[in-house]
Design a protein around this nucleic acid. Structure first.
Lengths: 161, 161
DNA sequence: TTTCGATAGTTTCCTAGTCAACGAAAGGTA
DNA sequence: TACCTTTCGTTGACTAGGAAACTATCGAAA
């Protein structure tokens, strides 16, 4: 051919492809397990985070879950409607709110955590313990790299050259 | 307390949590890069697969991409509307269709692949080459485990006991 | 040859998230 | 004190995918 260009990379040569592929399947399976308890994956994450911290502002939750404030607002509304979360006014800031678990929400967490454990086991049970540790270390390293980069708000994520 | 139960597993102890966390960020970044070219991540995957195989039936595409036939139908419709994919009748089966790239679609693939390369580099550049290989090996192993399990259509994915 | 179950793709409704605009409250500056 | 920018959360429009029902076609069996 008259014009040459670098070979087009394979779909399967992209780590992003494999990550999405595996994550989608793991999450879809987890979503099906949770569906039986009437919560979504994102709702589970909120419940579990609230179990740890007691109460949180929606804005902080949005940061922690890397979602928009609009999404968190709707998510919180659904959890309130399900009676799993309480929405309180922030006494220190009239604009703000405080989210906390209800007794019903708190009671659900152990069972949902067991579903997460089982789902993890179903997908990662094919890995040796050392492989699991290594996968977690690599994912944390990537996540940390993203967090660190994101901390430098003055510049967007850029390709390493 | 009067009633004891096993400790509730940490959110961060679940590999599924880390996978979703990292995958969402990688995909969201990739989606933003692709947005400049007017295609979504899923559309890119279709274009790239068609580059390899030439033509494919929507049903096969649904299997390969682990999406429903309804989603593929809409996805194909969008790509046809964008002039990137042609939809032909299957001469061997009146029900079926054949999807193939248009010249415009084929021309876009190298540039989109370069965006995928750059996105991968941005997120996985913090990994040593050996770590990248290991991550890919682990993800493929998990994906293969899922594929194998999925092949046994007679039984759903179950937790390993 | 006819009938019926299976297959292929479409379409409608629903869900969940993003985006952007909005209103209310807070804080800093003139 | 007043004004303006920033912050907090909400809401409507939109997107993309899943679920389920639908239509058209195919193939096997009676």
């Amino acid at each position: 051919m008259a014009v040459s260009h670098p070979p087009i990379s394979d779909l399967e040569s992209h780590l992003g492809y494999w990550l999405r592929r595996v994550s989608n399947d793991v999450s879809a399976s987890f979503a099906r397990r949770l569906d039986g308890e009437g919560v979504t994956v994102a709702e589970w994450v909120v419940l579990r985070m609230l179990q740890d911290v007691g109460e949180v502002a929606p804005g902080r939750l949005a940061e922690a879950m890397r979602m928009t404030r609009g999404a968190i607002s709707k998510l919180a509304e659904r959890l309130v409607a399900k009676g799993l979360v309480d929405r309180l006014e922030d006494p220190a800031d009239g604009r703000g709110q405080i989210l906390a678990l209800t007794a019903a929400g708190r009671a659900m967490v152990p069972g949902l955590a067991a579903l997460a454990d089982a789902n993890d086991a179903a997908f990662f049970g094919c890995l040796e313990p050392a492989e699991r540790s290594e996968l977690e270390r690599l994912l944390r390293k990537i996540a940390t790299g993203m967090t660190w980069t994101a901390c430098r708000r003055t510049s967007p994520v850029q390709p390493t050259v």
